[in-house]
């Protein structure tokens, strides 16, 4: 399978934060959820992909092409939603349609208008009169209306109520019905991703902690709950993180099957992405 997005050893240093050797790749036709705390480096990574901040080093390929050498062609074929960056809010959806017609060669006015109707967005009212959810929807349909191959979305569901979120997620799944279309979306709403994402990439303090298929994570990883004496018997190589609570130890393990074979501990819980995130960030490392 071809990769539609490939990042190798991306570095970007700021005074108080840095992206360190960020690497991950997204195969064509898939949805990748990019998760991490606020300030973990999600937005910085996305901005570096889009070259709206300059990377210090590293290799980035979008649609199989270098993101700097063929920037213009690549941008014809990607759609973006960024947090708090959009058209000036005194403009209307109709203005956006008029403008984008001349920006993208492949802009589809009919599709854009269909989306406006579908989401009940007024075409002649300034964006500033929109609610937060309406505004997000407008940003998303604007990113979709030129038939992009890759969508890059930074927190596209933040601020949306559950109903709007469902509509938006449906839109994303419609988008990948075409098997050459892919999505990278960052979110701290892990429940969104638990459903639709094929891959999960987890970033913390500017470093990628893991990047795997979601099924692999949810089925193989697990949380073991045990007592102190049991915990002492476990080889530190066999777990990734642990957390000592008042009544028990919580241990994050990478492979439930193997753990079960080796140890006689019965309580292995099914894990959510939230659990994973919390243990990865708050838990102690094994060594």
């Amino acid at each position: 399978m071809k990769n539609i997005l490939e990042v190798k050893n991306l570095n970007k240093k700021y005074d108080n934060f840095e992206l360190k050797d960020v690497s991950f790749s997204l195969p064509e036709g898939m949805i990748m959820g990019f998760i991490g705390e606020n300030g973990a480096g999600k937005t910085t990574t996305i901005k570096a992909l889009l070259n709206i901040i300059k990377k210090d080093s590293g290799e980035i390929q979008l649609l199989g092409r270098d993101h700097l050498k063929e920037e213009k062609q690549i941008k014809e074929e990607i759609g973006v939603v960024l947090d708090d960056m959009f058209f000036p809010e005194i403009l209307t959806a109709r203005d956006i349609n008029r403008i984008m017609k001349d920006v993208y060669k492949t802009w589809d006015s009919n599709l854009f208008n269909q989306y406006l109707e579908k989401f009940l967005l007024p075409s002649n009212k300034p964006i500033k009169t929109f609610s937060k959810g309406m505004r997000k929807k407008l940003e998303i349909i604007t990113a979709l209306a030129h038939h992009p191959k890759l969508l890059i979305l930074d927190e596209p569901t933040s601020g949306l109520d559950p109903i709007a979120r469902t509509e938006v997620l449906d839109l994303f799944q419609d988008f990948i019905q075409n098997e050459t279309c892919s999505i990278l979306l960052s979110s701290h709403m892990t429940t969104d991703l638990e459903h639709i994402a094929d891959y999960i990439t987890f970033i913390n303090q500017g470093k990628i902690l893991l990047s795997k298929t979601k099924d692999e994570i949810l089925e193989q990883y697990g949380i073991v709950k045990c007592r102190e004496e049991e915990f002492q018997k476990i080889d530190p190589k066999d777990y990734i993180r642990y957390k000592k609570n008042k009544y028990q130890y919580e241990i994050l393990i990478e492979n439930q099957q193997e753990f079960k074979k080796k140890y006689d501990i019965k309580t292995i819980d099914k894990m959510t992405l939230d659990d994973l995130m919390i243990l990865m960030i708050k838990g102690e490392k094994s060594c």
Partner: peptide
């Protein structure tokens, strides 16, 4: 018009468009 642009970070958004 620059004020309107800045308020919604238009220049950043425009940089994601082809040759923007």
């Amino acid at each position: 018009t620059f004020s309107y642009d800045d308020f919604n970070h238009w220049n950043a958004y425009a940089s994601c468009l082809p040759d923007g």
